[in-house]
């Protein structure tokens, strides 16, 4: 079977969710401990959510075509 980055499965889904939450928590911790904040820390959670949306839509389209 051909590998596709956007063809989502449970493993990819869990990894994406984990990245979103972990990077969000790290951002929060840095803010709470060092009182320092930079929007750069929010790039990962944003990309994670974007990936979930895109791969979800893509996977649905591919599944319907089959």
């Amino acid at each position: 079977m051909k590998r596709n980055f956007f063809r989502i499965n449970w493993k990819k889904f869990y990894i994406a969710v984990l990245i979103i939450f972990l990077s969000g928590v790290i951002h929060n911790l840095i803010y709470a401990v060092f009182n320092f904040e930079d929007a750069v820390f929010l790039i990962l959670p944003f990309l994670g959510i974007l990936y979930l949306i895109v791969s979800g839509v893509y996977s649905l389209i591919v599944r319907k075509k089959k």
Binding site: I20, G24, H27, N28, E37, D38, A39, L42, P45
Partner: peptide, 8 residues
């Protein structure tokens, strides 16, 4: 949702 938001 505050952990996903920045507070300028």
């Amino acid at each position: 949702w505050a952990f996903l938001a920045s507070e300028p």
